[in-house]
Amino acid sequence: MSTQVAIVAEGLATLAGPRILHTDISLTVQRGEVLAVVGGSGSGKTVLLRTLSLLQAPAAGRMEVLGSDAINLDSAALRVLRRRIGILFQHGALFTGLNVLDNICLPLAEHTGLSAGSRRELGMLRLGLAGLPADTASKFPGELSGGMIKRAALARALALDPELLFLDEPSAGLDPVTSAGLDELLKDLRELLGLTVVMVTHDLDSIARVSDRVAFLGRGDLLAVAPVAQLADSDLPEIRSYFAAAPRDYGDKSCKHG
């Protein structure tokens, strides 16, 4: 696989429980790009994200992730590959019984041999990267606003310095100002850390602000992959109606990464 490619999926079939949801997904994610995954309710956005992020195995097909054949790896090699991937879950998925710093340090404790002091030092650095003040470290998830929970979960997703970052509905439940601030943070982190980002979202403003390309799911298939300005003018009725529901000027944001 080219060093310019982060993910290649060919003929991918995905599972929702025992049911096959997608039967033939083929998709390439370029290194350094932000790819938004969109589609109507029930189109399988989160299922595709879980498959691409190695949280669940596909039913069929071929998939290479960061240069490795992700389908045929043994458990030890799969564990190593997963360390190169960070995931922000829709509701943050922070452990309520742990404070923010302990949540951030959890992947470091599980996957590294670092001392507790070193883990805490790195955890504080990730806290700062996520735009949270230092005194947030000792707070518990129940003491945080929705935006702070997303940022704390993002800090945890960055704990192991991943190359690939997956985001499941990062702006869900956030007000427009908080959502825009999170988008700006993601743009900055992409540039600072050289991240490749795949995000599931229904937020058209967020798509317009941060995505290089958009993958549109529908009818159990991947209907199109293109910059948002091109998709907004699509001839396909499913895509046209999706973007017409909340019309806006997307401009002509060309894809920088192919």
Rank of each mutant, 00 (worst) to 15 (best):
R126D: 04
R126N: 12
R126A: 09
G128R: 15
L129W: 12
A130F: 06
A130G: 03
A130S: 12
G131W: 05
L132H: 02
P133Y: 10
P133E: 12
A134Y: 12
T136P: 05
A137E: 06
S138C: 12
S138K: 15
K139N: 10
F140I: 06
P141T: 13
E143Q: 15
L144S: 03
L144W: 08
L144V: 11
L144C: 06
S145R: 10
G146Y: 03
G147Q: 12
M148Y: 00
I149E: 00
K150V: 02
R151P: 01
R151M: 02
R151S: 05
R151F: 01
A152D: 00
L154G: 01
A155P: 04
A155I: 05
R156L: 07
R156Q: 04
A159V: 02
D161R: 13
D161M: 01
P162C: 04
P162F: 00
P162T: 00
E163M: 09
E163F: 01
L164E: 02
L164N: 03
L165S: 02
F166I: 05
E169L: 03
P170H: 02
S171D: 08
A172I: 08
A172R: 07
G173K: 09
L174F: 08
L174S: 09
D175F: 07
D175S: 08
D175E: 12
P176Q: 11
V177I: 15
V177N: 08
V177K: 14
T178M: 06
S179D: 03
S179H: 06
A180W: 07
A180Y: 02
A180L: 11
A180T: 09
G181P: 02
G181T: 05
L182C: 11
L182R: 04
L182M: 14
D183I: 03
D183V: 07
D183C: 14
L185E: 07
R190T: 03
E191K: 14
L192S: 15
L192A: 15
G194C: 14
G194A: 15
G194T: 12
G194L: 13
L195I: 10
T196K: 09
T196P: 07
V197H: 05
M199V: 10
M199C: 13
V200N: 01
T201W: 03
T201N: 07
H202Y: 12
H202Q: 14
D203P: 07
D203A: 13
